[in-house]
Design a binder for these strands. Structure first.
Length: 175
DNA sequence: CCAGTGATCAGG
DNA sequence: CTGATCACTGGA
């Protein structure tokens, strides 16, 4: 299996979010054990205009990594409980990210963080170079649902109405 | 329906 | 320093 490269992540977040469906994510633990999952749901966050995107608040310590080039990992703790796993996309100074919302038949970004044992230490890590989390190429998924993003009611109707959540059908996989 | 739980950020 | 807010989940 080939790992996805920087050029893949440098595309805009909507393209990356769609094309990540069906790709394989591997988590290698310190004891040498590992797990492999299929990405089945993603959400795209696109630029400073997008009121649902954290980068719309400007460049801060937390959002800094989104202003870097694609391929870096953006993680943060939400509601004091859940670690969200995102991959930065786009080019330098074009803040974008894709949130991983589903793996195999497990749905929910909070559950994904727990499943993969994500924490602050992943912030800014280059996923194309990491030795503990990797994403491998796999055939494009043609059929998927487009839905509004979840949990962003504060962003205003224009941004709530964007269908930037992408869900593959479970039946595409042997889960 | 709503509590849990803590980092983060703007404002004094 | 304070206090509000938050890409969520699980249990009444």
């Amino acid at each position: 299996m080939n790992e996805l490269n920087i050029d893949f992540y440098k595309q805009n977040s909507i393209i990356v979010a769609k094309n990540l469906l069906g790709k394989k994510i591997e988590r290698i633990h310190q004891d040498g054990t590992y797990n492999l999952y299929t990405i089945t749901a993603t959400e795209a966050y696109l630029g400073e205009e997008d009121k649902a995107c954290h980068a719309s608040k400007g460049r801060t310590a937390r959002t800094e990594v989104m202003f870097q080039r694609g391929g870096l990992i953006y993680v943060y703790l939400i509601y004091g409980i859940h670690w969200m796993l995102n991959i930065v996309t786009g080019d330098l100074n074009s803040p974008q990210a894709v949130l991983i919302c589903g793996l195999d038949n497990i749905r929910g970004s909070g559950r994904i963080g727990k499943l993969l044992k994500i924490d602050k230490s992943f912030y800014g890590e280059d996923i194309t170079k990491s030795n503990r989390i990797k994403i491998y190429d796999a055939p494009i998924i043609e059929k998927f649902d487009q839905l509004p993003r979840k949990g962003i009611n504060y962003a205003g109707t224009e941004w709530i109405n964007k269908l930037w959540r992408f869900e593959a059908n479970y039946s595409n996989f042997n889960t």
